[in-house]
Design a protein around this nucleic acid. Sequence first.
DNA 1: ACCTTGTGAGACGTAGTGTCTCAAACTATA
DNA 2: TATAGTTTGAGACACTACGTCTCACAAGGT
Lengths: 203, 203
Amino acid sequence: MSHRRPVHHPTTSSDDVDPRVARTRQAVRVAVRRLVQRAGFEAVSHQQVATEAGIGRATVYRHWPKRTDLLLHALADVEAPHDWRSSGDLATDLARELERLQRTMSSSPLVPELIALIGRAEWNPELRETQTELLASGTAGLRRALETAIERGELPADHDLDTTIARLAGPLFYRRVLAHAPLDDAFVTKIITGYIDEVSTSA
Amino acid sequence: MSHRRPVHHPTTSSDDVDPRVARTRQAVRVAVRRLVQRAGFEAVSHQQVATEAGIGRATVYRHWPKRTDLLLHALADVEAPHDWRSSGDLATDLARELERLQRTMSSSPLVPELIALIGRAEWNPELRETQTELLASGTAGLRRALETAIERGELPADHDLDTTIARLAGPLFYRRVLAHAPLDDAFVTKIITGYIDEVSTSA
DNA sequence: ACCTTGTGAGACGTAGTGTCTCAAACTATA
DNA sequence: TATAGTTTGAGACACTACGTCTCACAAGGT
């Protein structure tokens, strides 16, 4: 919609968007997150978002015609750009990554949003794509840890990463989302030691 | 609402409810399931259900005032009353139970309904309770298998069942619901052998 | 100062919601 | 079969929400 191409001042943070648009976007992002955390995605309507954000209803429709656009927008900048360095030991790397995942899932106010996403991704291809991306970024650390271990020869080259990631991260999701049980340290430790025992005995 | 207590003919299936009510209940159950599978719980409104079931809108409101009541009703009879007998070997029992879970999650038209449930259970205590019950019944087989193994001395008496169940079933949920990847046999086999290796080496 | 563009307020028709009433149909029993 | 007690379906009703549109105004860029 914005046809402004030339960037005159390579400004600090925001892109070459109209400041008014940037304001709207930010306000809506915050509003959607608040609404989702308070009452679930079901409570997110253009009407509600406009009220919560203190902006006009028409403005919300202009930028995000569909309801799911609002959710996608709220999730848009949830990239986890964490710089990764291996400790040289698979067990240590996994522990660190799983604990990071544990922290994220235990405390992050984002979990409700992800659950809202899950519930809809089953029927909405666009949302499913976003979910896949978020999942990939959330488990990227685990994947890197395993890849590094393969390079070191600590794991066989044909080790199935996806399966392993599912076996490591799956139990966390199960506990948090399905069983509504706490993700305590003992639980995470058991997952790690179980897996390490398994690959070390087979080696 | 029905004050009919004395049961004259101990009839075959239905309780002592008015046949008209039984018809309504059944029709709504079917309609809700169809709608959820077709377009998700979001598509389930009293209006839609009435149309789909071919009954009056007011009737739907009478029986299920809230929208979630419709979901709960559709999930009400999903008990899995499967009679369980141990094969005498933990690995065999687990394989059977996990494969059952795999089949259920791969093919059952119920999975969409469960996902609809998950998405809302985070904010609705009543739904959360139902979800917990369904989860318990779905993993009852696994639990029985593990309990039997403890009785046989195949597992230590202080073995944490909830943790183990999360580690066995969690990866399946992860694959099916989050990763949208197929639950192939190789995957299930890896989960089982991994776990069996782990407990057998520690014994 | 100028022109451009996003915004907010509100009008508008449409569609869905939740409640209510009432005649008709159904059920169990005498 | 007749009768009394229930459930149902159809529709009326006020209300809210939806999605689109217009237009004056404010805020942005140059």
